[in-house]
Design a protein around this nucleic acid. Structure first.
Length: 865
RNA sequence: GGGCUCGUGGUCUAGCGGUUAUGACGUCGCCCUUACACGGCGAAGGCCACCGGUUCGAUCCCGGUCGAGCCCA
């Protein structure tokens, strides 16, 4: 891109961003497999292709892009891959909706094709937004979990875990969505509040309260608390279930709450998780009354075929007719629902596939990671501590990775494919060899498919180069996992579990957890609240760089962040300010060019470079700690307050002139602009590139992270004095109603040491400035003492207040010279070093002048007539 | 019900055991100073949620109360 002779007056962020995005090449961000630079592999989240890259994603990816670009500039061999977690219910549901069908209306393969097509379309939409955000994604490492190249590995990982005993098949109660007709894992159960009725009825002479009368046919016991005296006579009895007539035992269990309902509870298979616990510990019968489609089974007799709600009403009616329904009370309860369709889940006993969960091992691995912020580890610990059931990984759906298993029709033997034959679909493909047990060639393919988390929990194995066959991926483990705290219990948990099972190691070195984006009203964004902000809306109005600044500075990394248009607007204004700084600087640079040998020797130049050096150090430290807010704010402060408001104002006089002073300022500006662009590059890549390109040194994204250091404590201190004198005198002018560029007359600066500002202050103030050491011609009077409470408190402890009172009470002539000790409460106490300093008021004899003080520097102003 | 995080000018937000508590937006006043009015200079606005405790000293540490958000049961 050529250097523009004239920079446009206004910065058009959207136009600039689109221009650079068209210019940059994907190859610029490719990970190099044969490099010996240190690796930095990111286990990027593979989003679910909904077609909508939402603002929460945007925040997450901004963080990733900030450190990916930073690490790249630091010389790391960065891999910022991008995956797509395609399988699962949401897409199936969407296809059913769009096509007006259910999964059973079309052949399996046809249904899959429809899902794949929708997914492809959605991925395209999301890719577009991600490119517009200027994320430096390595598209050569893109993966799509629904493609054979990926799910082959999912299947391979399944087979290995099956062979090694991590995966087993068994009949066990599972969470089941009868609308989706599939088992789901606990992580997929969402609890919602609702009001229902608690029904009190006569159960063979005992009053029972239940919220689920439709499960009466599934009743297998009645439970009471062992110390509930009301029910002592029931011990060891059996009761006859009303309407159905089968006998059930009365059991005693501590978990029964005597205060709830009537204190007697019927146990059904299964009304809730507690029923499962009782069923197991008391070895009760299994009476499944609801089937996998949500209809009553034959066990329900005359109610067979009804849906559960229909059955509930019918049974309540029958109870009323029989005169056993006593009363009904409203009941607030939390009901488990399917995360996808909100249908209340049932617990059904089904033959399913499970992954063994070893909470201890997972916890140990989780604790080996560096968690940012560290308290997020607690969420993992909480979740793991509560694990009760193994992970149910089988789903009775279609658009998912098939479970690669056949069963022999003749002897029932489980037959597995060879890893090299993967991927397979056992409902379509046949084993290549006869049944090893009986020699039969008749097989039944497993129709169950895998939980989508089985795909995404090996994302890290995939990006670190696993081929599905090697014992371990060549680049394993990855350096970092960035993700939201909402999926700690799922994606992070399952990934650790799978990595341990497949490699024996933790999956990453660190995990960076980002917060949720809340709406402007402070609540989680949701359609029902109408507080959703789409990234595209921000991109269209203010551009990607402004949105990225919001992500960086809107809140501390890891905490939830409230969306705020103000921050976006402020970000955009900062870019305008930066643009004007750049325009001014570049204009100066081009008038005669930059003399690379010019001395940057004047105080203001050295001061600016020292401040720049401090800024680089702070930003670097902030980036290392993922404190993007701190990093960006340090840059803003430096650019706006130090560079624009102070330095440039100080050196304008020199720049408008000729000679060495101008050459030094020009070179200082050139250096500063160069470093500033590099600091900005991770945050606002398009802006940084636009300005840096003007310097004619190539792409800023090909530069190294600045290691600029300029150590000059004296210039740092004296420069500060000069900058503050100028600021104070500007304020003075303002207070006197003078224009800021009006002549100020004569100014005398009296400092404790010699300061040479090279004339900058005088030019900036339009004044004649005399510098002198000491305060000849003035007198001063001690009026107060100023204490350093950190020193006083540490040394005097309880006596601090008395000490300060005693010092204040000393005669002024004593305080004027150093005091070595002071009497506190009758005791002679030595004065600690630096405990206090005298404070003087200035008295000016003779001619009337105004006085401005800057720390220990006095400035007198004799205004021009 | 449990866990986590948080409560800072009107709004959002940074921060720290010790001078005058950070910044942004908003408000008000002055200024079109040859980079920038999307700007400059300045002003007002805070019992740092409340109550106890530790400490010479607490917005910060500890305990409790109240409130909010998130995650979970």
């Amino acid at each position: 891109m050529s250097i523009h002779p004239e920079l446009p007056k206004a910065y058009d962020a959207c136009a600039v961003e689109e221009r650079w995005q068209a210019h940059w090449r994907d190859e610029d961000h490719y990970f190099s497999r044969d490099s010996d630079r240190p690796r930095f592999i990111i286990d990027t989240p593979p989003p679910y292709p909904t077609g909508n890259f939402h603002i929460g994603n945007a925040l997450n990816w901004c963080y990733i892009d900030f450190f990916a670009r930073f690490k790249r500039m630091q010389g790391f061999n960065v891999m910022f891959p991008q995956g797509w977690d395609c399988h699962g219910l949401p897409t199936e549901v969407k296809v059913e909706e769009q096509q007006g069908i259910t999964k059973n209306d079309v052949p399996r393969e046809e249904f899959r094709r429809l899902c794949r097509e929708l997914t492809e379309k959605n991925i395209d939409l999301m890719r577009r937004t991600m490119r517009r955000m200027a994320f430096s994604i390595d598209w050569s490492n893109e993966y799509v979990t629904m493609q054979p190249a990926y799910y082959r590995k999912t299947q391979a990982s399944f087979l290995r875990m099956l062979r090694e005993g991590y995966i087993y098949r068994s009949e066990h109660p599972v969470n089941f969505c009868t609308r989706c007709e599939t088992a789901i894992a606990f992580a997929e159960v969402q609890y919602e509040g609702r009001t229902t009725k608690l029904n009190f009825f006569d159960f063979d002479g005992v009053e029972i309260a239940t919220s689920r009368p439709e499960l009466l046919a599934a009743c297998v016991a009645v439970a009471v608390h062992p110390e509930d005296e009301r029910y002592t006579p029931l011990a060891n009895r059996t009761l006859r279930v009303p309407l159905f007539g089968h006998d059930v035992p009365v059991i005693r269990d501590e978990a029964v709450d005597p205060a709830f309902g009537s204190g007697a509870v019927m146990i059904c298979t299964f009304g809730d998780k507690q029923d499962v616990v009782w069923w197991k510990t008391h070895d009760l019968d299994l009476r499944p009354a609801i089937d996998s489609t949500g209809h009553m089974t034959a066990l329900a007799g005359e109610y067979e075929g009804m849906t559960a709600p229909e059955c509930r009403e019918a049974i309540l009616g029958a109870m009323a007719d029989a005169g056993i329904l006593k009363r009904q009370e409203p009941l607030e309860q939390r009901v488990g629902t399917c995360w996808r369709c909100k249908t209340p889940i049932e617990i059904l006993s089904e033959r399913q596939w499970f992954v063994r969960v070893d909470p201890k091992a997972i916890l140990a691995a989780a604790r080996e990671l560096r968690w940012v912020p560290d308290h997020m580890l607690l969420r993992m610990e909480d979740w793991v501590g509560k694990m009760e059931w193994d992970w149910c990984i089988s789903r009775q759906r279609i658009f998912a990775t098939p479970i690669p298993v056949w069963f022999c029709r003749d002897c029932g033997e489980m037959v597995l494919p060879s890893v090299t034959d993967l991927p397979i679909d056992p409902t379509r493909d046949q084993p290549k060899v006869p049944c090893p047990a009986c020699g039969s060639t008749r097989f039944e393919g497993e129709t169950d498919v895998l939980d989508t988390w089985m795909d995404s929990s090996i994302s890290v194995l995939n990006v670190t180069g696993w081929d599905g066959i090697a014992p371990r991926p060549p680049l394993f483990p990855a350096q970092i996992r960035p993700q939201g705290h909402d999926i700690i219990r799922t994606w992070a948990f399952y990934t650790i579990l799978r990595s341990l099972a497949l490699t024996g190691e933790k999956p990453w070195e660190q995990i960076l957890v980002n917060g949720m984006v809340l709406g402007e009203d402070g609540f989680k964004m949701s359609k029902s609240r109408g507080n959703i902000i789409a990234p595209e809306e921000i991109l269209g109005k203010y551009g990607a760089d402004a949105l990225r600044q919001w992500a960086a500075a809107g809140a501390a990394t890891g905490s939830d962040i409230q969306f705020n248009w103000n921050d976006v607007v402020a970000a955009s204004r900062f870019q305008t300010k930066l643009w004007n700084i750049a325009r001014f600087s570049l204009l100066q640079l081009r008038k005669g060019g930059v003399d690379e040998s010019a001395a940057m020797g004047l105080l203001a130049d050295r001061w600016l470079l020292a401040r720049l050096s401090a800024c680089v150090a702070e930003v670097t430290e902030a980036m290392e700690g993922y404190q993007f807010d701190r990093g960006l704010k340090a840059i803003r402060e430096f650019a706006w307050e130090v560079l624009a408001d102070e330095y440039i104002e100080l050196v304008k006089g020199r720049l408008y002139g000729e000679g060495e002073g101008r050459a030094g300022a020009v070179r200082t500006l050139d250096t500063t602009l160069d470093v500033l662009c590099r600091l900005l590059a991770p945050f606002i890549p398009s802006f940084a590139e636009e300005v840096f390109s003007q310097l004619g040194r190539g792409s800023v994204h090909a530069q190294s992270w600045p290691d600029f250091t300029f150590d000059d404590p004296l210039a740092l201190g004296d420069g500060e004095v000069v900058a503050r004198i100028v600021a104070e005198l500007r304020r003075f002018k303002h207070e006197q109603g003078m224009a800021l560029n009006a002549p100020l007359g004569e100014v005398t600066v009296m400092a404790p040491r010699a300061i040479d500002d090279g004339g900058d202050a005088g030019r900036a103030l339009n004044a004649i400035v005399h510098w002198q050491v000491g305060t000849q011609g003035m007198s001063r009077e001690l009026v107060d003492v100023k204490f350093d409470k950190a020193v006083v408190g540490k040394n005097l402890r309880k006596d601090a207040a008395a000490f300060m009172d005693a010092v204040k009470a000393l005669p002024k002539e004593v305080l004027a010279s150093p005091v070595s000790s002071v009497v506190v409460n009758g005791v002679d106490v030595p004065v600690p070093e630096g405990a206090f300093a005298p404070v003087y008021a200035t008295l000016v004899g003779g001619e009337q002048v105004d006085v401005v003080t800057v720390g220990d520097v006095l400035v007198t102003v004799r205004r021009s007539p």
